[in-house]
Design a protein around this nucleic acid. Structure first.
Lengths: 199, 199, 199, 199
DNA sequence: TATGAATGAGAGTTCATTCAT
DNA sequence: AATGAATGAACTCTCATTCAT
């Protein structure tokens, strides 16, 4: 008898969780949180319903897990932008910020839906917003170290809306039209950055 | 002998519908479409469940009715702005456009939720978006008659995102902070209008 | 001021009851007892729902009233046949009995449905059956006065099934085919009568 | 090592379906289709409501399933009679046909009710009638090969009514009285067969 | 450990009946 | 007396979750 390695099992578990997550995101985006059934998620991900419940003991926990992963990913990306911000022109920074939104559109739809559905949960819209805000503030602090509290705050809030606009363009517009529109959107972001940095 | 008026009945009916609509908007905003039960709406509006179903024969019809009212109100307000646009400075026009979003925040949340939930209905997000687009295009045509097809189109799309930003500020930010932020947001709108009008 | 005659009112009431009865029979036949709503009956008969309830205080009472009328009509017709039976050949008697079933097919369907639905009511299928049995026994006693208790009983029961067959032919078969079939059915009835009378 | 048999589960399922069917037939017979609730059927068969819906996803599907089983059983029995018909005297054939109706009386009542309630379904009264007609025609063709189209048709229709009479006797009459009455009914059937075969 | 049949609370909806007008 | 809006009990059906196998 050889030692039964745990690695393969863990590996299998991770794949399973990944498959479940993908199926869940697609379905939540399509039908909303309440409109999606655990049975569907199980079927679409090729998982037995009992196994699904082994990984995610409630439907809410599944939603929260997806939201957490999303929030952490977003924070990470923004941290990277903040790190590089000092050396960039405002034009480049604007472009990079807009590029941050280039995650699959389906994710956006699903996450918005989930954040609304989990209003009382640990990743409510409010909390996601705060986390996004923190990431952007960090970028602004890196780009314009002179910004003080109140001005930093409002600059961040405006930037957040601009980011949401970019994101909405990706979600709402058709492939090509979206690209063109984003090119029109970058100047708005850059102008905002300029106003903020030079005032 | 007084006129045997039907008004009271009709009046009562209209009040009932109003009460139901208000309760429904509040609950849909709080809990989403699927998360809200017809029984709750009835209770909150002081209506018997049977009466609720007399006015709105399905939950979907209630959602659609609210969406319709919302879409029509929005179209009307934009039509008024378009009418006055020719005589306004771009600063004023920007301000007026931003002011258009000054409808109760709860409405916004509810309507977004409903439009998503009624994806296949007569007031899906796509259709609402189109209607909003049409209203904005009308304003732009009034303000900048020289704009041709393709440029008008992308100008409208960018403007729509700016409008959504203003709306989001109202929805998301606290009372006072929101006002300040909108003051910062107006210049973005004005800059966009300028770029569009003078190009 | 002249005396307000009650006759017109009564007349009106009778017409109303007639209209309601016709509508009810048609609907009960189409959709069954539970499948028919009081509101539909009111609408189809041009009666306000409140007025319908003035004449028939419950849905059950309406059904019972229709069943009673039907049972009484059937008894009356059979009594007439019994009266004339002594002077008829068995061929003629058979023909007359079969002719008794010539009431509108829709009635039959409705009455069968109602009798089933009112299992506990005063005109249950069992009771209707008994009343029909009594009518037929009367006819047989008139046609074959020699028949004693037990033989009369079984002769009546067989005759009842033959009558039901004739009725079913009218209900189920198309206009013309039905007529032909009834011509084939009469000999069966006559043979039964002969067996019964000459044994 | 024993076979990891799936039989127990399937066995359990089959028993469940059988229990549900029996409960449903009894209740449909007692209270009609609309008068019977799924909850009652579940309770009477010792099934959880959710399990009932696993086997029969709608009330209609339950009715249809019962009707199908009934129709198929009837067709099968008639086919067996047809097979043996050529070697039988008409007396024996009549007796066998009457014996075909010897299925539980409760079934008859339930099936009649269900066929009416499912007017638009795949086993409407019309279709059941047709299937019964086909079975009887097959018997007649076997017994009297000389019968041509039109005569076969009307002979079958008359036979059908005679069969219904036998069935009604079983349903309506008490145990012993029924047996006696059926003995009186057989000659009617035999006479019909004779007329048909020798004309 | 993995499976999926079984569970039952709770949702949307209907309709017989009442009663204010 | 006549009307029809209002009522709410009761029905069909769904689905998150459990647990025997």
């Amino acid at each position: 008898m050889s030692l039964p390695s745990l690695a393969p099992k863990r590996q299998r578990g991770r794949l399973r969780v990944q498959a479940i997550s993908e199926a869940a995101i697609a379905l939540f985006a399509e039908r909303g949180f309440d409109g999606t059934t655990m049975t569907e998620i199980a079927a679409r991900s090729g998982t037995a319903i009992g196994s699904l419940y082994r990984f995610f003991p409630t439907k809410e926990s599944l939603a929260d897990s997806l939201l957490q992963r999303y929030a952490e990913g977003m924070a990470e990306v923004l941290a990277q932008v903040a790190e590089k911000a000092p050396g960039l022109t405002l034009d480049d920074l604007a472009w990079r910020l807009v590029a941050v939104t280039a995650r699959s559109g389906i994710d956006q739809a699903a996450m918005a839906t989930l954040a609304d559905a989990r209003r009382e949960g640990p990743y409510s819209r409010t909390i996601l917003r705060q986390s996004f805000y923190d990431g952007l503030a960090r970028v602004l602090r890196a780009a314009a170290p002179a910004l003080d509290g109140a001005r930093l705050d409002s600059a961040t809030r405006v930037l957040r809306q601009l980011m949401k606009g970019a994101l909405a363009i990706r979600t709402e517009e058709a492939e090509e039209a979206g690209r063109d529109l984003l090119r029109d959107w970058c100047p708005l972001v850059r102008d905002h950055l300029m106003r903020v940095c030079h005032d």
